[in-house]
Nucleic acid binder design. Structure first.
Length: 432
RNA sequence: UCCCCGCUAGCUCAAUGGUAGAGUAACCGGCUGUUAACCGGUGUGUUGGAGGUUCGAGUCCUCCGCGGGGAGCCA
């Protein structure tokens, strides 16, 4: 008799229940109305024949508009002709608010351009594909938390307002901070290193900001990142952690997002193959592979998108590339003791999306770090606290950052990261 | 910041320099099993903006604006 979530409807076959939600679509065949109602947990077909309800209700069913908020009472029937295998035979029907016409997104996800849909993002979220992606995102984040909590990592929240650049090179959003200037964080990493020296194994999960004028389907100015950092861990340790981590998150998505993948038309077979170990390849081997694939590659240069795609090739699993040239990586990377021109870092490249993880072993020697800070022309004073970590009980340590939206895009098979965050922020979009 | 592409009806798109069109949505009518239902009917325009060339510009030229894809940078 009570209100039932559409997701759980099949367990109530034969019972009379109430569903509350919104009109998604309506089809009418004379003396028969088919309503599609969504309630946030799923989509449901409701059927009403002329004899099933009183005359006023039947007339109302014929003119109720898309997105009107409604309450439907009826009998749950298992019905193979209905999408989802179950439907509601309408007994009572009530409109809470009749939605204005026309509705801006009349045929759900169909026939609209990205720009228009982004302008209507607050309504677009209601569509089956958008809501499925957001559910996958939520479960990916839950999986991330579970993974680290199960392994006795401590959640640490680094600051969002920061006094200076973490890496100096990238552009920061600046904000007024009373009489001073402050910046929105572009990475919590340096703070996570401090936390690792206190708590051993730590991770963060939160927003990050980059004022880069990037215009690609893999970039946002505001995105979410998960950053684990581990005292005493080496590059090899975190490469193993990264592949277990990514595999865990994908497996959890497969276990919990079956309905969502159907809505997204995501073929899950490639995801089922995501298990450790991932292919590990040195930068120098990767360069050879890129050139063998006929893609241009300069000596000692970083990889761009075409190069990353060539490295992943048609591999269904992510590929881990390690030991990049010192010159193309951040100042805090630890030098490879076997080769001065290489640092102990790793990028995890996912099929179709590219880099989802970047990380490595951190420089733990005070003199080397001071030298690097000078070399990169960074303001030494801003890093005094960071250098303290190397003065007072420095140990080898490693960590990485995983981009949430890129990971969700890869798992969902979505082409754009901006579909993987509720309200995307890009260089040309801060509305809605 | 650079390169390429786009901007025409609410939306998605057509239109050799020669009367501004279709599909779809919306609205009206029909249909007892529809699946983006279908069938019939009705309306819809500062062609992103400003100049210019021309007898005539949606179309060609210049500038500007807005957006998309990519580069750089990165997750």
């Amino acid at each position: 008799m009570g209100v039932v979530a559409i997701r759980d409807l099949k367990q109530h076959a034969g019972e009379t229940v109430t569903v509350r939600g919104w009109m998604f679509n309506r089809r009418s065949a004379g003396k028969l109305h088919f309503l599609q109602v969504r309630d946030g947990s799923g989509f449901l077909q409701c059927v009403a024949g002329r004899k099933d309800v009183d005359e006023a209700t039947f007339e109302l069913l014929g003119r109720v508009t898309q997105e009107s908020s409604v309450q439907v009472e009826g009998e749950v029937r298992l019905e193979p002709r209905a999408p989802g295998g179950a439907e509601l035979g309408v007994r009572r029907f009530e409109v809470i608010q009749m939605a204005a016409q026309p509705y801006p997104i009349s045929i759900q996800d169909h026939g609209h351009g990205v720009d228009f849909l982004m302008e209507q993002r607050h309504l677009w979220l209601r569509g089956p594909k958008a809501s499925a992606t957001l559910r996958v995102r939520a479960r990916v984040i839950q999986a991330i938390r579970d993974f680290f909590n199960q392994r006795d990592f401590t959640l640490v929240d680094p600051p969002i307002l920061t006094p200076a650049a973490c890496e100096g090179t990238t552009t920061l959003f600046n904000v007024e901070y009373f009489e001073d200037k402050a910046y929105l964080t572009q990475s919590g990493q340096l703070y996570m290193e401090a936390a690792a020296m206190a708590l051993g194994k730590v991770y963060s999960l939160g927003p990050t900001f980059r004022a880069e004028k990037s215009k690609t389907r893999r970039h946002l100015t505001e995105f979410w990142m998960c950053e684990p950092e581990i005292a005493f861990a080496t590059l090899d340790d975190i490469m193993s952690l990264a592949e277990e981590f990514v595999s865990f998150v994908v497996r959890r998505a497969l276990e919990t997002c079956g309905e969502e993948f159907k809505h997204l038309e995501r073929d899950t077979k490639p995801l089922e193959k995501i298990v450790p170990p991932f292919h590990r390849i040195r930068y120098d081997e990767a360069v050879t592979k890129v050139r063998a694939a006929g893609v241009e590659m300069r000596d000692e240069d970083d990889f761009g998108t075409p190069q990353e795609m060539a490295i992943v090739g048609d591999s269904e699993k992510p590929v881990m590339v390690h030991r990049y040239p010192t010159a193309v990586k951040a100042f805090y990377m630890k030098r490879d003791p076997e080769n001065e021109k290489r640092v102990l870092c790793v990028d995890v490249l996912a099929p179709g999306i590219g880099e989802i993880i970047g990380g490595g072993q951190r420089a733990d020697d005070l003199a080397y770090l001071e030298e690097q800070i000078a070399l990169h022309k960074l303001p030494r004073a801003a890093f005094d606290w960071y250098l303290d970590l190397r003065k007072y009980g420095s140990v080898p340590h490693s960590g990485f950052g995983l981009g949430i939206e890129r990971t969700v895009a890869w798992i969902c098979g979505n082409e754009h990261v901006r579909e993987c965050i509720p309200f995307p922020r890009t260089i040309y979009r801060i509305y809605p």
